[in-house]
Design a protein around this nucleic acid. Structure first.
Lengths: 125, 125
DNA sequence: GGAACTGTACTCGGATACTATGTGTCCGAGTAGTTCTGG
DNA sequence: CCAGAACTACTCGGACACATAGTATCCGAGTACAGTTCC
């Protein structure tokens, strides 16, 4: 029960892209060096974000990643969902959705998600 | 980023103990059969709860587990912490505690914990 | 009849094996600028 | 001088290898109760 490191990398990459808001794409090597991880691994993470439409990838020389339109409205929750998946954190296999324990757990999970929905990377710069 | 199955088992075991509130201990085999898991595995999970003082183990014939005194005040969060550990869900390794991203994540995590602290197993029976 | 012995049912806890997922690397393919070459 | 070829720097994405944590089982040890044996 922990957030994966990939989520950490994704959030920081998004923050970096937002902080240096230039029109020229930022290469994955620059982003990777900032966080002391391998470019190829970060590439996999950013691909997930690109598939969700949060960033655009520009291939070829001087290529890299740019924030997509409407990036200001991307919340923490959106980024986390893109990396960790959207399935809920708790599941009662025996009783299913009617389980009272599951109701409590899901309710608490929603509270956290509501909070994560409030914050955007734009808030941090 | 999911709650482990062990947490599920622990919560259900606690609920079962609370529901059948008899003075005679409930054997691990009964609890295991209710949840379709092996008794030995459940035993390891219950041992964690016993170490935290939430339940008492009675060894020997007609042994088993009983709720400890003050069980009514045991919250969901207490049980989860006993199984999953108390460390926070998110950590920024590069920037440390000052990282703005970490602040947002921790803040959201606290919201969920506050909710989990409100509910006790006594509420469900 | 009562004390000691034996059997049984149970938990305890360490050791071990399996599995899923997260983490990270490697490499071939594709793409778009840049440089070089030949007419 | 300029069009096309070769080169280079970069991303893309699949395949693979490794690490870690979660899941599950097995077994020897300890404990307490019940029944049995023996004096």
């Amino acid at each position: 029960m922990k957030f994966s490191k990939a989520t950490n990398y994704a959030l920081h990459s998004m923050l970096h892209l937002a902080a240096t808001k230039s029109n020229t794409p930022v290469g994955v090597q620059v982003l990777a060096k900032k966080q002391d991880i391998s470019p190829t691994y970060l590439s996999k993470i950013l691909t997930k974000l690109a598939k969700e439409g949060m960033i655009n990838s520009v291939s070829g020389a001087n290529g890299g990643y740019t924030l997509s339109h409407g990036w200001e409205s991307i919340s923490f929750l959106d980024i986390i969902h893109a990396i960790e998946g959207k399935s809920s954190l708790f599941a009662c296999y025996n009783h299913g959705p009617g389980c009272p324990i599951q109701k409590v757990m899901l309710n608490s999970e929603v509270k956290m998600e509501e909070e994560l929905k409030k914050y955007t990377i734009a808030d941090l710069i």
